[in-house]
């Protein structure tokens, strides 16, 4: 079975490294790119055409909410999961899912939560 392609968008290299380990160790996914802000995320989404996107919210240059909106306008079937420290703020969660995010995971996260949600998409 082909592995699903995952794009990570997070300004933290530490978190991207940790996420890459988690998703690739499951044997189901392959990380194909890492954008360090929303703008890079949009560019990589267009060029790499990933199956899934893990998106942070608080980032420099362009934040995650703006990036989700842009990506959904490029491909309305994009599968974006928000992984953010601000996921406990109701307004942010509502905005993210209104823009089209499929789920919202809070940081710090558990590996099984990430894999469970990505597998379900």
């Amino acid at each position: 079975m082909d592995k699903k392609k995952v794009l990570l968008v997070d300004d933290s290299v530490s978190i991207a490294t940790q996420l890459q380990k988690i998703v690739e160790e499951s044997g189901l996914f392959q990380v194909v790119g890492h954008g360090k802000n929303g703008l890079e995320g949009i560019k990589l989404f267009t060029s790499l055409k990933p199956d899934l996107v893990c998106m942070d919210l608080v980032m420099p240059e362009m934040d995650g909410l703006q990036a989700i909106r842009a990506i959904m306008s490029i491909n309305k079937d994009a599968k974006i999961v928000v992984i953010s420290s601000a996921a406990g703020v109701g307004d942010k969660v509502m905005e993210a899912i209104k823009f089209g995010a499929k789920n919202v995971i809070s940081k710090p996260f558990e590996a099984e939560t990430i894999i469970g949600i990505l597998k379900g998409l």
């Binding site: 420290s85 996921a87 406990g88 703020v89 109701g90 969660v93 509502m94 899912i97 789920n103 919202v104 995971i105 809070s106 940081k107 710090p108 996260f109 558990e110 939560t113 949600i117």
Partner: peptide, 13 residues
């Protein structure tokens, strides 16, 4: 694992 609101808690699960 962090602070959540119930809507996101149910969504994440």
């Amino acid at each position: 694992m962090g602070i959540k609101f119930i809507g996101q808690f149910l969504l994440e699960k």
